[in-house]
Design a protein around this nucleic acid. Structure first.
Lengths: 222, 222
DNA sequence: ACAAAAGTGTTTGCTCTACACCCATGT
DNA sequence: ACATGGGTGTAGAGCAAACACTTTTGT
C-alpha cells in the first residue's frame, strides 16, 4: 500500500490569498493542476517527507516554515495507479523573494485560492477536497492562534498583519479595532522598536511574532 | 508499508471520562494495554476500517456513533514489526447498555482517561501520544460543536449534558448559567416535550440533539 | 495644503458571571 | 417539612463594534 504526502502551500501576495500548484508532467492526470507531493521513503518520517517536498518546490529552507498535518485520505480508487493513501500537510509561507525556485519551476504557479475553490474540476485526484479542508483549517486557526504571522516577513506592521486576515478570510476589518486587538492580545506581537513608512502615510511601528501559541481572546471572523 | 487504524473510543460513565483499552494478547507488547485497532484491508476505506473495528470492540451498530479522524502517525520505528503508519480515529459513544460486548470482551476495559494520561508508560507503541492528541481534540470540540450530545442517550436532561462537560473538562460548571446557555444556543438542543425525574428533585425537561453543527457562541472552558 | 495611513478615546450595547430566588418532585 | 435538583431574574463587570478625532509622514 503506497503512502504519500501532499502539500497545500499557502501564501498571501499583494492582498491575494494563493496556493502553490504544479502542472503534472506525467500520467495519471498529465497536464492537469495538482498539489505538490510525493511518496514517503522507507526510512523517512511523514513530516520529513513533507519538508523535503516543500523545500523542493519552494527552494526555501523549510525549518523556518510553519507546517502541520491536516488529514489523511485513503479512499480506494482515489489514485488510478493503485492503492495510495495520502497524508495532507498545510504549509504557510511568507511572500517569497524568489517566486518559485523549485526544481521544476516552469510548471509551478501561485493561483488564487478562491479561483481554485470555485472550480471543483480544476485539480487532479481528490485534491480539490484536500485543498478545501486545508483552507478551512487555515481560516479557523487564524482566529485562535498567532499563525497569521507565518504569512508575514520577520518584521511587519499591524496593517500588514491585518491584510493577511482580510485576504484569508475575505472580509474587511476595522483598522482601528484590529490594531487595538492585535497589540493588546498577550503574546501575539512584540514591538521591534523601529518604524517604517513602506505602507505610506504616518510611519508604522514594526512588530515581530510573539511567544503565544494560542490567542486569548481569539480574533473573530466578521 | 502497512497502514492501520487505531481507535480512541471515549465515553462518560457515572461522571467519569473513560477510554476503551484492550490488553494485547499477542506480541509485540504482549500483555500491555493498547488502543484497539487493526490493519486496513485492500478494498476498504480508512473510515470503514475504523467503523469495523469499532463495531468489533463495542458490539454497537456503528452507524449512529460519532467518528472522526484525528491524525496519522508514521515515525519509522513506532512499530517493531516494521514500517506501519497508523491513522487515529476518535469515537464518542454514550454509556453503553452492554459494557463491552466485543469479540474479545475479557481483555477490553473502560479506564479513566485521567489515570492513563498521568502514566505515560502505560500504553504500548506511541498510543499515549495518540490518546493525548485525541482527548485534546475532544475537549476542544465540546466548546464550539454540539458533540457533547454524542456522549448522551437519545433523550437527555440539561444536567446530564452538563455532567458530560464537567467530566470531560474536569471542571465544575454553574448549573444555572449552563442551563441558559445550552437551551438558548441556536440548534444545540431541542425540547422533546416530556420530563423525567431520574436525576431526582424537580422533574427535568428532556431534550434531543439539535441540528446545529457549530455553536454560536461557543461554551467556554472554566 | 492635502491625502493617506497610524494610532487613541469614547459611546453604546451586549454577554458573561455570580448569586438571589422560586418551582416541583420524592421521602 | 425538608432535601434535591430544575429553572428564571437581575445587578455589575467586562468586552467589542462603531466611529469621532488626533498624529505623522509623502507629495
Amino acid at each position: 500500500m503506497g503512502v504519500a504526502c501532499d502539500l497545500v502551500i499557502l501564501t498571501v501576495r499583494d492582498g491575494s490569498f494563493e496556493v502553490l500548484l504544479i502542472r503534472r508532467g506525467i500520467a495519471p492526470h498529465r497536464g492537469r493542476w495538482a498539489l505538490p507531493g510525493g511518496f514517503v521513503r522507507p526510512a523517512e518520517d511523514l513530516e520529513q517527507t513533507a519538508r523535503r517536498e516543500l523545500a523542493e518546490e519552494t527552494g526555501v529552507d523549510s525549518d523556518r516554515i510553519h507546517l502541520e498535518q491536516v488529514a489523511t485520505y485513503g479512499e480506494p480508487g482515489r489514485d488510478p495507479r493503485g492503492r495510495v493513501i495520502s497524508v495532507a500537510y498545510l504549509a504557510l509561507v511568507p511572500d517569497l523573494p524568489v517566486p518559485v525556485a523549485g526544481s521544476d519551476a516552469a510548471s509551478a504557479s501561485w493561483i488564487p485560492v478562491a479561483d481554485v475553490l470555485a472550480d471543483p474540476g480544476r485539480l487532479a485526484f481528490d485534491h480539490h477536497r484536500i485543498l478545501a479542508d486545508a483552507v478551512e483549517r487555515a481560516r479557523a486557526k487564524l482566529e485562535y492562534s498567532p499563525l497569521a504571522t507565518a504569512f508575514c516577513a520577520d518584521e511587519f506592521t499591524i496593517s500588514e498583519l491585518r491584510g493577511v486576515y482580510e485576504a484569508v478570510w475575505g472580509v474587511a476589518l476595522d483598522p482601528r479595532n484590529f490594531h487595538r486587538k492585535a497589540t493588546r492580545t498577550e503574546g501575539f506581537v512584540e514591538p521591534v522598536g523601529a518604524t517604517t513608512t513602506r505602507d505610506g502615510g504616518r510611519p508604522a511601528q514594526l512588530f515581530r511574532r510573539g511567544a503565544a501559541t494560542t490567542l486569548h481572546p481569539p480574533l473573530t471572523r466578521a
